[in-house]
């Protein structure tokens, strides 16, 4: 054991010596002569506040440069090294500040977004369509059934109230089915569902000529997973405005 330890110590010592010898060989390089100081590079910054305006409003451009002999903003022209200016662009514009000096050129940009004027007030039709989609509720069905469930009466009454307030609106009722069963049978079932909704509405006072029906069977599902929650989503009479 002792001999082995001795061997180790010798080895470590020898290695250390080699490394030190190696280190001693390296001579420090002389420092390079200091270069002449370059002319200071210009700096530039440009901001627009606010950076989003409506058409016709104005915004303030604020800029700052250093070490520049020549300062300009495109579309505005030559400007003071620092300053601010109110502008009123007609459309969204990107302003570029260019600062030139002996040390080079620096640019900075700021974008002003101009929003288009608000759309004209909605037409009466669109309002009716919006009201339609807010108030008219789809009617849901049980599996393989086309009779209207008692729990769907609330939806149906809400629909009837809307149609009594908007007696001239044209719409269609789409009959939809879940993915189970045959294509052909589901199209016939969807037809029965659409007609069940239509018949209930007509009994409730809706003019028959204003209601179209179409069956989609399982061709245009609302939900494509294979579980009961999804299937229930797909078993419905769906209202579509203006068809």
């Amino acid at each position: 054991m002792k001999q082995r330890k001795l061997k180790w110590v010798t080895l470590v010592f020898a290695l250390g010596a080699i490394m030190m010898l190696g280190a001693c060989k390296k001579k420090p390089a002389p420092p390079p002569p200091p270069p002449p100081p370059p002319p200071a590079a210009p700096t530039a910054s440009l901001t627009a506040n606010p950076n989003t305006i409506d058409k016709g409003q104005s915004t303030t451009l604020t800029w700052e440069t250093t070490n520049a002999t020549d300062t300009s903003i495109d579309t505005v022209g030559a400007v003071q090294p620092s300053g601010s200016q109110s502008i009123s662009p007609a459309q969204s514009t990107t302003y570029t500040l260019t600062a030139k000096g002996p040390g080079g050129t620096q640019t900075a940009t700021a974008r002003v977004t101009v929003n288009a004027p608000p759309p004209p007030p909605p037409q009466a039709n669109a309002t009716e369509e919006e009201l339609f989609s807010q108030n008219v509720k789809d009617v849901y069905f049980d599996y393989d059934k086309s009779d209207i469930r008692p729990d769907q009466q609330t939806s149906l009454q809400a629909d009837l109230q809307f149609f009594s307030q908007h007696p001239s609106v044209n719409f269609s009722v789409e009959g939809h089915c879940d993915e189970r069963g045959s294509t052909e049978y589901n199209l016939a079932l969807g037809d029965s569902r659409a007609n069940a909704v239509r018949n209930a509405l007509v009994q409730g006072g809706v003019t028959a000529d204003h209601v179209k029906t179409i069956s989609y069977g399982k061709e245009k599902p609302f939900c494509s997973e294979s579980n009961e929650a999804c299937w229930q989503q797909n078993r419905r009479g769906h209202f579509v405005y203006g068809k």
């Binding site: 086309s146 045959s182 052909e184 049978y185 016939a188 079932l189 037809d191 029965s192």
Partner: peptide, 13 residues
């Protein structure tokens, strides 16, 4: 065109 069924409920295929 002649109709041959008259029962409520889908008749198809």
């Amino acid at each position: 065109l002649k109709r041959i069924t008259s029962f409520k409920g889908p008749d198809v295929s």
